[in-house]
């Protein structure tokens, strides 16, 4: 099958629950059971308190567009989505930030604003992999 994007590679054991969740349409994030703070990327020790007691929770999928760019060219040859593409940093309402793409809006810096509310959506790449993406909250325009 001809994929438009590089698949997440390699899926490390520590991040497996994130990708298992995404396949089922759930945005899973890690959370420290000791200090209660959620964080991403997944790791075995809490970056806030160094506790090793880490669990997974489902995020609401809501957040704000912390920053963005509009890519007119992509260096990675395995990325074949037609440009321009909106590259995004999203801050989840739980706190952690993720890199993603902003979809459902024209790739125009006059229309896209930092801090605009966004919500997760998923793009199925294969039977195994769905990729969390974000769109303006309240559905695509």
């Amino acid at each position: 099958m001809d994929l438009e994007r590089p698949l997440p590679t390699p899926i490390t054991p520590e991040c497996r629950p994130y990708w298992d969740g995404a396949r089922e349409g759930k945005l899973m994030i890690t959370k420290c059971r000791a200090c209660g703070k959620p964080f991403m990327y997944p790791r075995v020790s809490c970056p806030f308190c160094a506790s090793r007691d880490i669990g997974w929770v489902q995020a609401s999928g809501r957040g704000r567009l912390y920053s963005f760019e509009i890519a007119h060219q992509i260096l990675n040859k395995a990325f074949k989505v037609k440009t321009p593409v909106v590259l995004a940093m999203v801050e989840l309402e739980e706190g952690p930030r993720l890199l993603s793409n902003l979809v459902g809006i024209a790739p125009d810096p006059k229309q896209i604003r930092c801090d605009m509310p966004v919500e997760v959506c998923f793009e199925k790449l294969t039977d195994e992999i769905s990729l969390p993406m974000f769109r303006p909250a309240g559905g695509a325009r």
């Binding site: 997440p8 390699p10 990675n76 990325f79 993603s100 790449l125």
Partner: peptide, 13 residues
Amino acid sequence: ALPGQFEFPYGFG
């Protein structure tokens, strides 16, 4: 391992 999962699929790099 980390950018390969969380960045490259979106066109970062």
